[in-house]
Design a protein around this nucleic acid. Structure first.
Lengths: 343, 343
DNA sequence: ATCTTTGATTTAAACGTTTAAACTACCATT
DNA sequence: AATGGTAGTTTAAACGTTTAAATCAAAGAT
């Protein structure tokens, strides 16, 4: 079913049908009714490819994600898609599958670049109106993406890039969380940071330190540890932190997986959470729901980040925005029962 | 950068450039080199929209998912995308967001239909070559999707539909799991099924019963329970099953969330897993990694289901397949330490 | 010397839209 | 009666490809 066929069935020209469809010109009530009737009857759907070709805009945006199987990715995609749908845009998804690659190939960096190039090939080929990159981008990535002459938004985390970006606040969130612990009377802290090279780890740790410094609290060197974000290393670190009589009264784990490890370590050492030691996490991961007492943690505005990214992108597409915009969204404190009031 | 521009830069006709690009006709080495050089220099990328319009195939497939934030969905999408990419296809994703809708709206059925229609509008409008529906489809959905004149593959679960489908084996998997328990000497079973109305619950339960029947084992009515797939109800059901002196020696939970609930219930009742009671789950969910002892469970071939769905779809697109094909993939047993050998 | 064949290239139509420009009635002013 | 304006409609070009058909030149066969 094409415009032409509709037109001939209605006994009018293709232009008229197009005008009816988009109401972009005056059409008499009579012909409008006639045409609309036929459109409904035939179930005609306009060919978006042809439309996009002619209009020189595709109403398509490309979404590149580092790994779709990392759970937070789905929520961001969900947010992106919701706005896209509402605004009449569609998305094509490209999955870099970074997780497997980093694990299995030593030369992942070069593959990485090749994969992005490939993704860009199809996206630019599809004439996307813009691109959202979901993940941790560094200068290299923003350089690659900067080369295409389309609006780009970086969503999730970023180092120092060019381009518009949407992220959540790591530093401030942990800062506030730590303040909360201090207000509750805690003075002896243990910290389990994430991977040293990781940007969020650095940011979160900064927030932690800032709160300590402001309160004039210093930490024992031995109470500063880090893990690989995973349960096991969190538990191991916690065993060290808690395995002495003068252990900290509060342990700040930089994500929930490790926080759960802390709780299990505590139990195995015969310590009660929160009575003997307080614990906080980060992420509001699924696992949180299974452990009791509920670990106090923090929820990232994942869906909202999707919303904002898409909105920002569309501003760029419409040429509305000037220059780069960076949005940092706050996280929400999810209060559990893992923090004891000491005062 | 268009074909025309490349052509004029190379001093040849657009046809020649097109032939070089797709090598679909004889071109002299000399001109080929010349054209390729310019293509490389300019970084030309062909306009897929125009190509698709002309060729009357889009190399696009639509993927409709019931809810992208349900964790298994991401793995299926990953599989779909991997094959798509390898075959030169792209995917556009439509998320029905069913989870929120079912919770918040009583008239979700009609919205559901409208949402699918909307998704189809854009997909058909984009001239997708085919569609993969990821989720539990019923006759209603296959009726809607059957109306479009494109190949469709249903992935995940299905009742009795028309159309090709890919799913994992529920019945046989639980059958084998139960056989394993029987071989290990278990005779007194408790079962925690999923939601009664749910198809996978029914299938899994069938598999369970079949193994029991074959072994001539009968169950006490009171040991047959069900929950809503969630931790809490699993735990509650387990409390009932285990709260008596002659409790079952093995509890088959129809998913991991509930199996974890069983373990916690056991612990609270002072029972040891697996010494006092054996437990099995289903899904190999993330949570499994956090509980010890490791719960014996089963992994669904999610990514593989994505692969197969895409392959099946492309067969349909290429007109290779005749009639509907149904593929049922086996699950893999993940042996933990939650099952005791009684013999 | 003429006719075929072959290989390399170009011409031009087609895909399904949008849209500026042209056209046609019809009516209202002068 | 000529002019102008307006509402409704059509014409035709354009978007960037692909591809059947046409063209052309050079080589081979008679």
């Amino acid at each position: 079913m094409t415009l032409k066929e509709i037109a001939s069935m209605a006994g009018v020209s293709v232009a008229t049908v197009s005008y009816v469809l988009n109401n972009t010109a005056q059409v008499s009530d009579e012909t409008r009714k006639k045409v609309e009737k036929i459109i409904k009857e035939t179930g005609y759907r306009s060919n978006i490819l042809a439309k996009s070709l002619r209009r020189n805009e595709s109403f398509l945006v490309g979404v590149i994600v580092e790994d779709v199987t990392v759970w937070h990715t789905a929520y961001i995609i969900d947010g992106i898609n919701e706005i896209a749908e509402a605004r009449g845009y569609n998305t094509i998804l490209s999955n870099l599958r970074l997780l497997n690659k980093i694990e299995s190939q030593f030369d992942h960096i070069s593959n990485y670049q090749r994969d992005i190039d490939k993704a860009l090939d199809v996206m630019v080929g599809m004439q996307v109106d813009g691109i959202i990159y979901v993940g941790m981008h560094d200068r290299k990535i923003s350089h690659i993406l900067g080369n295409i002459k389309k609006p780009v938004v970086y969503c999730y985390c970023y180092t120092d890039g060019e381009g518009s970006s949407v992220r959540y606040s790591n530093e401030k969130t942990v800062y506030q969380m730590t303040q909360m612990l201090i207000e509750n009377g805690h003075r002896e802290f243990g910290v389990i940071n994430g991977l040293k090279e990781s940007e969020p780890a650095a940011l979160r740790y900064n927030g932690f330190l800032k709160a300590l410094n402001e309160a004039g609290i210093t930490m024992k060197e031995e109470n500063i540890t880090c893990g690989n974000w995973k349960y096991r290393e969190g538990k191991e670190a916690a065993k060290k932190l808690l395995g002495k009589s003068d252990h900290p009264t509060a342990i700040v784990a930089m994500n929930d997986d490790m926080a759960v490890g802390v709780c299990d370590a505590a139990r195995e050492l015969g310590l009660k959470v929160p009575d003997d030691v307080s614990v906080t996490g980060f992420d509001n991961a699924d696992i949180i729901q299974y452990v009791s007492p509920r670990i106090t943690t923090v929820e990232r505005p994942l869906q909202e980040m999707g919303y904002r990214s898409m909105e920002l992108l569309l501003e760029g597409v419409r040429g509305a925005s000037v220059g780069d915009v960076s949005i940092t969204l706050p996280c929400a404190l999810i209060e559990g029962e893992s923090v004891k009031k000491l005062n």
